[in-house]
Every structure is written in structure tokens, then in C-alpha cells.
Amino acid sequence: MNGLAASKQLSLGQLFLNRNGRNQAITVLTEIKELMSKLQIKEGVVPGSFPIQKLGGGKGSLPLWIRHLVLILLGLKYFKIRTSMVQDLDHKRKTEIEFINGEVVSEAIKIGLPVPENERIVNEVLKIESEFPS
């Protein structure tokens, strides 16, 4: 969600309390879930976090309305939180977008899996960064 929030330069509350933001978040997670499945990567869930396998669409996911509810609750809980990438952009610093969503795109290209939302995020963040003074 770090990259998605950065691409929009929004706090998590602003992102998740917006239906379009939640839909984009679910799409990003679904793309990552599909990539993990194709690469046979098992998810390790950090205590206190929510598994991609449940929030992303497809097999094993929660019903859509519950996924939206989870994101709304996260948006309320972390309403003012501006992720590290958003803070980097706020301060006109380069982000780690290429090492997070960019890695998703890179690995997906290798196996021919389309990940258009992750590509859009990377391109948008890189565009913002390109406008920084040198």
C-alpha cells in the first residue's frame, strides 16, 4: 500500500476511506497474490498485519464486502499516517518504489503476467520524482 499511497500522495485514511482507493488497493493486492502464486511464494504474515491472500481477490480471499470493511477500518485506524514513500515525496526525496512495486513488475514481466496497477503506480511515482529539482 506504500506505493499506492505514494502514487496518489495520500494518507492511508484518505486512501482507504475512498471507494476508488479501496478498489485500487484490492487490485494491487490481487496482482501481487497472483504473482506469488505463480512463483510459489508462501506468504509470511507479520503479527498485527493482514494477509495478502485474504485481501487480494481470487481463491482463498474474503468476500469483497469484508475486504472493503477491513480497508475502511485500517483507514480509520491509520487515518493520518503518511507512508514512508509519501513522506519521501513530501520532502522531495527519491523513494524505494523500484524495490517494492518495481520488483513486482519486474518479476511479473519475466513470467508474462500482466500487473497493470503495479506498473501504473511505479510510473506515477517515478513521474513525481522526475519533477524534483536536481
Rank of each mutant, 00 (worst) to 15 (best):
L17W: 05
I81M: 08
R67K: 15
K80R: 15
V45I: 15
K54P: 01
K38V: 10
S106N: 14
K80H: 13
L126E: 07
K59M: 07
F50T: 06
L71F: 07
I26Y: 05
M36A: 14
V125H: 01
S106C: 07
A6N: 02
I81T: 11
Q14S: 13
L64D: 08
I111R: 10
E107S: 09
G56L: 02
E124F: 04
L76E: 10
V45T: 15
S7F: 00
E119R: 15
S61A: 15
G21K: 04
Q53F: 07
V122C: 10
I52R: 06
E129S: 04
T83F: 03
G13R: 02
L35R: 04
L73S: 09
N118Y: 10
G21I: 05
G57S: 14
V122L: 15
V70F: 03
G58Y: 09
T27A: 13
R93C: 06
P116R: 13
G58P: 05
G75I: 06
E31F: 08
L17F: 08
R19T: 11
L126M: 11
E31Q: 09
L126K: 15
L73F: 11
E98C: 09
G48W: 12
K54Q: 11
V105A: 06
T30M: 06
I109G: 02
K127D: 11
I52G: 01
T30A: 09
L39F: 05
E131P: 00
P47G: 04
H68I: 07
E129H: 07
I41M: 10
S11M: 04
E107V: 05
I100R: 05
N18F: 08
G13V: 03
E107Y: 09
V125W: 00
V86K: 00
W65D: 11
V28P: 00
I111Q: 14
P116E: 12
V115E: 00
F16L: 12
L113W: 07
H91L: 15
I100P: 00
E103Q: 13
G102S: 12
G48S: 07
T95P: 03
L64P: 02
A108Q: 04
M1N: 05
L126C: 06
V86G: 00
T83A: 04
I26F: 04
P133S: 13
I121L: 08
Q40N: 14
E34G: 02
L35D: 02
I100L: 15
Q40P: 00
L64R: 08
L10K: 05
L15N: 07
L15G: 00
I52H: 06
I41C: 12
K94G: 04
R22F: 06
S134N: 15
G21C: 07
T30I: 06
Q9M: 12
N23A: 15
E103V: 10
Q14C: 07
E124P: 01
E98Q: 14
E107N: 11
E117F: 07
P51I: 10
T30W: 05
V86C: 02
I72N: 03
V70R: 00
L29M: 15
P133M: 12
G58M: 11
L62D: 06
A6D: 01
G58H: 09
N23W: 05
L35W: 05
K42P: 02
E31P: 02
L55P: 01
G44C: 03
E31C: 06
L39C: 09
